[in-house]
Structures are given as structure tokens and as C-alpha cells.
Amino acid sequence: MRDLFIGLMSGTSMDGVDGVLAGFSTGRPQVLQHASAPFPDGLRAELMALNTSGPDELHRAWLAGNALMRVYADVVHALLAHAQLPASAVQAIGAHGQTVRHRPQQFDGTGYTIQLAQPALLAELSGIEVVADFRSRDVAAGGQGAPLAPFFHQEVFGRSGHAVGVLNIGGISNITLLRADGSMRGFDCGPGNALMDDWCAQHTGAPYDDDGRWAASGHVQDPLLARLLAEPYFALPPPKSTGRDLFNRPWLEAHLQSFRHLAPVDVQATLTELTARAIASEAKRHAPQLEELIVCGGGALNGHLMRRLQALLPGARVSSSGDHGIPPMQVEAAAFAWLARKAVRGEKLELTSTTGAHGARVLGGIYPA
């Protein structure tokens, strides 16, 4: 048996789905195929809208989940076609779903996290067992529900006796700190691409700032940057997690009230600097001996942002995950293939040092084919 799993990830950037076919025959994950699919405009607009309260939410969310699973299924079929494999060759799919609310430990002490998905539908469409809803058990156990990838990062990127950071910059940025003594910590730093992408789309019509060129042509506005960095989330100690519930367009608009005179390009430069500063500050505070920062997610493709991270962290080498064997847009999907394998094997993950959960738990619900 080739020990094959598929991982599917659609993150807070809400631009589409990345999928990988991963093999575990050697025990370590190996990405064998990659496929992706963009969200149709209508689905992306609906997913974005469902991040805030609105009319008929339950009905709309369920239908959006159905539509999302059809995009997921398209990616699964593409992976199988590329690999020339039948569905029966894959043991399970790890399907993250689309986060639309993330409020752990709030309201009643437990809170909730919502990833839209209809795993039963995906099992029907693919003919493969599906593992989904990875975050809820961690929240139920007193955790933040995020990040869940640190143990995967440790297995793939860790180096014994060295201090290494693994940074995923999607819509939100999250970091795994792998210390030289073997200890580990992981948490959300703050905004990643979400604010930058939204501002760029509004003012240029482009879905994102290609290579950070627009931001690089502007000037960071220090008073605005100081206002943004005063957000209390940045001062919170880990474990902590966040999402579009906090770092969203209304949050930005509220801070821009006194800065309407600024050119849009200078706001973009400042938002990029915000992402870089928030990340660098957390790295310095919690891993002052960091030797290397390995970056994945869409932010790794932003040359200007990568250069700012290197400038802010002169003692560490800032590199792309592609330099270490897995291209940036494949890492998170590979992590959910790995998590699916853990769930199928009934293996618990001890996430206390990252999410703050009360103990080791098996993450994910299983939907047989």
C-alpha cells in the first residue's frame, strides 16, 4: 500500500483551493501532485459576506458549503487524473473547509470556530473517505483551534539543535517556532495578506499586489502604522489566534478615519509593513535566537514583503519553503493530508504548547466513502 492521502486547503485569503496528493510510504510526507482551482466570483463574494452577520445565514451557509465541496471535488479529480490513479488508491481526504467565523473561548468560555464544509457531499462526489472539522475538537478541549500545522512543520522543516521558524502568510499570518532545545510554540501573528489584498482590489482592481510592487512604490506612513500596531491583539501572549472576525475591512476603515488624506499606495505600503512588523516582533519576542525563518503561503510570493522580513530579522535567514522541498502554495494542503492520516490512524496530537488545549486529542470527524 502506498499510503496515499489528499489534503485540501482554502484559507482566509479566500481566493481558491489548493490540493495535494501526498505519499507517506517513508513515514515522512512527500508531495506527489498539486492542483488548484479558483473560487467562482459568486462563491467568493458569498463566502466573504458570510464572515459577518446577515439575513438567512443558515440557508446561505449550507448552500455555500455545497458549492465549496464541488470546487474541492474538482481539485480531487484533477489530482487523480494527473497521478493516473483511481479514487480507491487514496485512503482519505483531509478537507479543511472555509473559515467564516473564529471565536474560540468567547461568549460562554468555549466559543466556536466555523469552517464551512459538507464532508458527506465531498465523500459522495469523490468516492473517498473524508476527514473534516479538524478545529472543533481542539476548541472543545479548551484550545484556540489554531494553528494546527506546527507538528507537521516540525516533522518537515525541523532541524535538531537549531532554532527554526515556519511562517505561513495566508490571509492571516501564523508562525511555528521550533527551538534548538526541541520545544515548540505556534500562534497567529495577525494579518497576513487579507488587508493588503482587499485594499489592492479596491484601488487597483487587481486581486493582490503582485510581488508587492505597488506597496514598494509607496511610502510607509508612521503615524498610521503606529495606530494599527496599537491593536491590543498584538500584545497578547500565546496561545492566541485570530481571523477576519478582527482584521477586516471595518477594522481598517475605523483606523483610517483620521488618515483620509493619504494616497492609496501609501496605505498599501503601510499595510505591508504592518504584516512584516507584527511577524518580526513576535519572532524577536518568542525566539530571539532564531536562525532561519521558512515562509510559505501566498506571502512567500511577495518579494517586497520577504525583503522587509529579512531587513527586520537580520540575524535570521528568511527563505521560501520551496527552498526546503515544498513550494509555498502546497504546504498547508500537505499539512491537512498529514492531519487526515493522523485521524484515520487514531493518533492524538498534543497541541497544548500551540493552541492551549487541555491535552492530546484526535482531531477531525471521519465520513466514510
Rank of each mutant, 00 (worst) to 15 (best):
A337N: 03
G322R: 04
A311Q: 15
V344H: 05
A335F: 02
V318C: 13
P327L: 11
M306P: 06
A335W: 03
L339E: 02
R345Y: 12
V318I: 15
A311L: 13
R345V: 05
R307D: 14
V318Y: 01
H304G: 06
S321C: 11
A343Q: 10
G325K: 09
A340Y: 01
A316E: 03
V331N: 02
H324D: 08
K348W: 04
M306Y: 10
M329W: 03
D323Q: 15
L349S: 15
S320P: 07
M329D: 12
A316I: 04
A316G: 07
A316L: 06
A311R: 13
E347F: 07
G315C: 09
A340S: 15
G322L: 00
L309P: 06
V344C: 15
S319K: 06
E347A: 13
A335S: 15
H324R: 14
S319R: 11
S319Q: 10
A333W: 01
R308D: 00
A335H: 02
F336T: 01
G322K: 05
E347K: 11
F336D: 02
Q310E: 08
A337P: 02
K348I: 01
V318A: 06
W338F: 15
E332A: 04
G346M: 11
M329P: 12
L312S: 12
H304W: 14
S319H: 07
A316N: 04
F336V: 05
G315I: 10
L313Q: 03
S320L: 08
H304C: 13
L305G: 04
R341F: 08
A340T: 00
L313V: 09
A335N: 03
L349D: 07
L309F: 12
L339F: 08
L312P: 05
M329C: 11
A316Q: 02
L305C: 09
H304Q: 14
Q310R: 09
A340H: 01
P327T: 11
V318E: 04
E332Y: 01
Q310N: 08
E347T: 10
E347V: 13
P314K: 10
G325I: 11
L305Y: 05
Q310H: 08
M306H: 10
V344A: 11
L349C: 10
K342S: 14
L313D: 05
G325L: 12
I326A: 02
A335I: 02
A311F: 05
I326D: 00
A316W: 00
G325V: 11
A343Y: 02
R307Q: 15
H324S: 03
L313T: 04
P314A: 08
H304M: 08
P328R: 00
L349E: 12
A337F: 00
L309K: 07
P314M: 08
F336H: 02
L339P: 04
R341M: 06
K342C: 13
